[in-house]
Simulated assay, not measured.
Amino acid sequence: MSTMGERIRKLRKLHGLSQDKLAELIEKTKSNVSGYENDKFEPSAQTIIALCKVFNISADSLLFGADEVVLKIEQSEYISIIKDEIELVKKIKKLNYDERLKIEGIIDGILISKELSQNKNKNSSLLINGEESATTETA
């Protein structure tokens, strides 16, 4: 299991940030960032919040290295991602723009088909229930 310092270093590198740039973004010094990454000391709660904002992750992910990563998508929308889904995203990132569009089209097609199937089942259920009530009322 990795330490919080190791996770901070990994996330910083993943985001292509130098220690100087990360320090600037979280309003700390390069030496603070180095201390966090080398587990010499732990960041304050305020710094943890700043790191989570920079890396777009949950505090659980930073603090505990949870298998499940929670990403903040927009102001009030979060999405939970498990390891399998992260692996899928890694594969997608290896594709070029046109290949990604094809994958997106395939996914959209599957989702539309699923939605149509669910709507068909709902309509069938409504029809059956409607027929039952019409039969009960006339009897």
Rank of each mutant, 00 (worst) to 15 (best):
R100P: 00
K30Y: 12
D67K: 06
S18W: 04
L88C: 04
D84T: 11
K93D: 11
L88E: 00
R12A: 07
K28T: 15
G5K: 02
I81M: 12
I86R: 01
K120C: 00
N121D: 15
I26K: 02
L101M: 14
T136N: 10
E74T: 11
L95Q: 00
R7T: 03
L116A: 14
N119Y: 11
S124R: 07
M4W: 04
D84R: 10
K40C: 06
E24N: 11
S133N: 03
E37P: 06
K94Y: 02
S58M: 12
F64M: 13
A23L: 05
E77I: 14
L17G: 09
I79H: 08
A50F: 02
K30Q: 15
S61M: 09
V89E: 04
A66L: 09
S2F: 07
D39Q: 09
I112C: 08
S117M: 12
I79R: 14
K30F: 12
C52W: 02
D60Q: 02
L127F: 10
N121I: 11
I82P: 07
E85G: 06
N121C: 09
S61H: 15
S80C: 05
D39T: 03
G109S: 09
I57H: 06
L127A: 12
E137H: 01
K94W: 05
L126Y: 12
L95G: 02
K21E: 15
E104F: 03
I110G: 11
E104P: 00
K93S: 12
S34C: 15
K10A: 15
E104V: 06
N96F: 02
I106Y: 13
I106V: 15
K30C: 06
L101P: 00
F55D: 01
S18I: 07
V70S: 06
K21T: 11
I82K: 13
I49D: 03
G35R: 08
E131D: 05
L51E: 04
M4L: 08
L62H: 00
A134H: 07
R7S: 05
E137N: 08
L17I: 03
K53H: 01
L88H: 03
I73D: 07
A50S: 10
V33P: 02
S34R: 14
N56Q: 08
V70C: 07
G35H: 03
V33S: 10
L101W: 00
I79V: 15
K93C: 05
N121M: 14
I107R: 02
F64Y: 15
V54G: 06
V69C: 04
A45M: 12
G35P: 07
T135I: 10
G35A: 13
R7M: 03
K83T: 05
I82C: 12
L116T: 08
I8K: 06
D98Y: 01
I79D: 04
Y97Q: 13
A50I: 00
K122R: 15
K90M: 07
D67V: 01
S113L: 09
F55Y: 04
I57K: 01
T138F: 15
G105V: 01
F55R: 00
K72C: 05
I86N: 02
D67Q: 12
E104T: 05
S58L: 08
